[in-house]
Amino acid sequence: MTSSKHHAEDKFVALASIAAELNSVMAVAWGVSLAAKNAKVISAQSGDKGLGFQPITEFIDEIAQQAMQGVQDINNEALHLTKIAVAEQRSVDAFRRFDSVRNKNDKARYIGSMSIAMQRVEQHMLESTQAMKKSLRNLNALLESMDECMLSARAIASVSRIVTSNAQEYRDKLALVADDLDKATVFIKEKLSDSYQHLKNVDMRSSR
């Protein structure tokens, strides 16, 4: 029973950690979005010289919005997965206690009446396990989608550096936005990598 509780706590801690890792992503993505909006203003002020940069700022903002939505979706799925994990843990706990009743009271006159309750709890365990696996797959897909989003972000950061090199007097300001995007991408990718590791832990600890 002790190892089961420890195992469950690890699972819940891992899920909470995913949410925590990605909450910091939300703040960074918000910062990038703000920087992209500033860049739009800068490129507008630069007139013809900033023309090449305007669509880039649109892309940066779009990427930041996608990252924020992605974090929201991942958090929602992590919360859903936590609820399923709680239900699964309750069923596992009940099954173990029912099993203990059955094993220790085999001579009880009405021990046979436990079988329906045990079957029902076993069915719940099975359903919860299947629901957990489905939710884990969803969570994995959302993290992958976020990863792809970051690949696009890095590509845009590289392109924006080339474009900014033609913007002369606004070059430094626009280069700063490109650098911000690059740094944010590196940060988010680190957080995604940590989240993958937590998700792996949840997956491993879900198999009984």
């Binding site: 206690r97 029912f98 203990s100 009743v101 220790k104 009271n105 009880a108 006159r109 009405y110 021990i111 009446s113 436990m114 329906i116 309750a117």
Partner: peptide, 16 residues
Amino acid sequence: VFAPMLGAILHHAKVE
């Protein structure tokens, strides 16, 4: 006390 309690009950009554 759930498990010992239910175990003790099953000497006197069915779960249902």
